[in-house]
């Protein structure tokens, strides 16, 4: 039987509590992984491994967190994503909410794309 969004969220929440050592109440849908939950870059690999195990899915490298696009210097000028870069980023992350990011698409704002909601959206699409 397909999992409901609430069930997916609860499992993602447990995963992040275990991976990052944070309290359950801190893991809201809007929380950003790095700024709110204190994740470091290396935690992303751990999170991917744990999500794969928790949901019995395979997450190809760069699909959930497309670091090859995020870190591609060709898509950035003076600290801002170019129109092409932004377009590539949106294509690579259909599971992310770009509403806030698009207002100021700078490198510094990238962490706002990596939220708990982004993960829940990704898993929901993956399990659909």
């Amino acid at each position: 039987m397909a999992k409901s969004r609430d069930e997916i969220f609860a499992q993602v929440q447990n995963t992040l509590v275990d991976a990052l050592g944070v309290d359950e109440e801190d893991v809201s849908e809007g929380a950003t992984l790095t700024q709110d939950l204190g994740a470091e870059s290396i935690d992303f690999l751990d999170i991917v491994f744990r999500l794969e195990k928790a949901f019995a899915i395979k997450i190809p490298r760069g699909e959930l967190f497309p670091d090859d696009v995020v870190n591609n210097p060709d898509y950035v000028e003076n600290g801002r994503f170019t129109a092409d870069g932004l377009s590539k980023l949106k294509a690579a992350m259909p599971h992310a909410d770009f509403t806030k990011f698009e207002q100021n698409p700078t490198v510094d704002m990238v962490p706002t794309l990596f939220t708990v909601k982004t993960i829940v959206n990704y898993i929901e699409r993956k399990l659909a």
């Binding site: 690999l45 991917v48 491994f49 794969e52 195990k53 490298r61």
Partner: peptide, 8 residues
């Protein structure tokens, strides 16, 4: 070994 791929 629990899991291995290109990333780790």
């Amino acid at each position: 070994l629990e899991r291995i791929d290109d990333s780790g």
